[in-house]
Design a protein around this nucleic acid. Sequence first.
DNA 1: TTAGGGTTAG
Length: 577
Amino acid sequence: MVATKLILTFMKNFSTLKQAKQIHAQIITNDLTRLEPLFIHRILLCDITNHKTISPYILSILHHLRDPDSFSWGCVIRFFSQKGQFIEAVSLYIQMRKVGLCPNSHAVSSVLKSCAKVEDDLCGVSVHGDVQKIGFSRCVYVQTALLDLYCKNGDVLTARKVFDEMAERNVVSWNSLLVGYIKGGNLDEARCFFDEIPKKDVISWNSMVSGYAKGGKMEQACYLFRQMPERSIVSWNTMISGYVDCGSIRLAREFFDVMPKRNSVSLITMIAGYSKSGEVDSAREIFDRMDDKDLWSYNAMIACYAQNSKPKEALDLFNGMLKPEIGLHPDKMTLGSVISACSQLGNLDQWLWIETHMNDYGVVLDDHLTTALIDLYAKCGSIDKACELFHGLRKRDVVAYSAMIYGCGVNGKVSDAVDLFEQMVGECIDPNLATYTGILTAYNHAGLVEEGYRSFNSMKDNGLAPSVDHYGIMVDLLGRAGWLDEAYKLIMNMPMQPNAGVWGALLLACRLHGNVKLGEIAAQHCIKLESETAGYYSLLSGIYATIGKWNDAKKLTTGVEGKKIIKIPGCSWTQLE
DNA sequence: TTAGGGTTAG
């Protein structure tokens, strides 16, 4: 009975890893093999929030059983599957099969769900083989999990076949296939299927509304939403998210304001929406309203700052999140935004500090984070480290190549940038706008006008229309090389309004080459667009000074002092603080 | 066993 008591303690009383370790040690020393299996199963089925830390103990308990049967294995597999540890669930299933045990329906339906999540077609197919061999044809749970797996793998035809052959179906079977049709992109077909569902529940309705919302068909989504016999928080959140995705933050807010009950998803969706539309203050207002701020809320707000050029605020919030009174651990999402913020500030130190805590956070660098780091290291001048990370990537995509090309460009390694560009095209990866920003920057830094021009003109061959930033780089490149008239002509032929960056590049070039006529034109535009920037006045005054127009030069300088215009410090990739 | 929220390059 001592052991029984210990197990009950294990189930109810641990909230820290230390406690779990102590209780586990007691269970092991009391020889668990003599316990009734029922108690073991109760441990596994109990709801433990701190599941990651107890996983090793669950495995240890399984291995301490003298002769674990298929029920024990099934419980453990279900535990891992329910707690989101899908790879572990699949690997346990494989172990169980190796031991020669026949899985029960719990084990099979759980492992099918896990297969769907780990996106391994092969393991799903082999479990399907088991299903047919062992014979679960009448088990609605197993059959539904199977059809869901095929839906998630994008094979709706096979899913339909499973559905048609099912001896018994419930609403989950219908919903699973409905989502399969929706994910397949054919909304009309999905709608016909939805209309056929004999007893729709709120999930059927939500799925269909979400299908319309994700497909950008908000009118249909709204029409269906109004017809719903009952609505859950998810229904409202789906509508909000749909409006956010199509850029209608005002309509999203209307739904948000009238919904009967809100949860953290509602708030996070609004934060992301405001972030997308650049309304950082409104996002912060929502964030401050949240009572229980979890990791997702912090991630949304930190991402909002990072995406809206407020890197300092992003890092402040990140550091606040780590304080003991909040005590949250960052995950991959957090670090992605934090690295982006570091990169914008040229602050490598903050990252180097984070790196020493990676083991505590339990975050492993994936390709996504590594790509962000390539950008960070390259911008901070550590091009060799960036290169090392780039070569360690499992798969190099257009983002990784673009970051690396840009990194080579700003570090004066033009031939490396060109090689990478060609290598990328050789791997059949299409360059995008950012790739061209990188390669044009490289040509610009090296002063290679003709090569730059050729590359700029080749953008349209790849179906890309240069953005205002690409024009800015070209004007800079032409201007620095002294081709001022060509640069001016390029500006005049731009399909969009030139911004202060474009005119500023021309102004700088005029200062370098002492061209008063174009310099005055450029300065006029710059001042019109950004009158508070002092740099333009001093550039123009510099042009006057080089040709001896001292009075004009002086007038401008005193004008600046009189107006108290802000001087923007020279831009550099080193930290601005 | 099914539905709603986030991350990388410029």
